[in-house]
């Protein structure tokens, strides 16, 4: 059974006059990799919103691990939180993801939510901060970091939840060489560990490296 399955999904924004996504179907097995391509405004971010249960298709169905994800399903807060725990989403603009006073608290937010013991929270947070080379920033305020550092903090904050699926919207945009290398290495490791990845990127090299299925939105 596919982990993610979209069946003829159509979505139009309330203020829009034509669908951003029209009759889109796709399926992705657990551990698979999907690379999204398309011009600006082709619906990549909208598709990510649908996959995260932030927008609901007006036609068609979205199934995650066999469950149909719609307004009714996510109206149960327990089911909604279990679903959100399984999908990690990195926004295109990390500025809008960081709302804690310290980098450490930002990354520790997820595991604390899960009610993990404080030692485990600390261990997971430190692991993720080290993974992206930002352990030295743990006492800094995320707001005052550079764009690339913010992106790495945002990704660490998503990963401490240990999601099953990672959705990345333009992951390499705004990163310097060190940041790009760290992230590329991480994504390769993520793939090798058999975890599911969906990424929108204009970077040919990253798409080739990850060797995933390519879906071009028009």
């Amino acid at each position: 059974m596919p982990l993610i399955e979209l069946d003829r999904v159509t979505y139009t924004y309330p203020e829009g006059d034509r669908p951003v996504l029209r009759d889109l179907s796709l399926s992705l097995e657990g551990g698979g990799c999907l690379i999204l391509r398309g011009d600006n405004g082709s619906g990549k971010t909208t598709l990510f919103r649908v996959l995260n249960g932030l927008a609901f298709p007006e036609k068609g169905t979205y199934r995650f691990d066999g469950e149909t994800i719609d307004r009714a399903y996510l109206s149960d807060s327990r089911r909604a939180r279990a679903f959100h725990k399984r999908i990690g989403y990195l926004f295109q603009n990390p500025d809008t993801m960081l709302f804690n006073g310290r980098v450490f608290d930002e990354a520790a937010f997820g595991p604390r939510q899960m009610g993990l013991p404080e030692e485990e929270v600390r261990a997971r947070t430190e692991d993720c901060l080290k993974l992206f080379g930002i352990a030295d920033l743990s006492d800094k305020a995320p707001y005052h970091l550079s764009g690339g550092q913010k992106k790495r903090v945002a990704l660490a904050a998503v990963l401490t939840l240990n999601p099953d699926v990672l959705i990345l919207d333009e992951p390499l945009a705004g990163l310097d060489k060190k940041g790009r290398d760290l992230l590329t290495d991480f994504l390769v490791s993520w793939r090798e560990a058999g975890k599911t990845l969906i990424a929108a990127t204009h970077e040919e090299s990253l798409a080739d490296l990850l060797a995933g299925r390519v879906l071009t939105l028009t």
Binding site: R124, D127, L131, N162
Partner: peptide, 18 residues
């Protein structure tokens, strides 16, 4: 190369919200 990932990240967490 996946050795870069911490052990807890390689598997899945059994998590049930309370």
């Amino acid at each position: 190369m996946s050795d870069r990932l911490p052990a807890w990240m390689k598997g899945s967490d059994p998590y049930e919200p309370k």
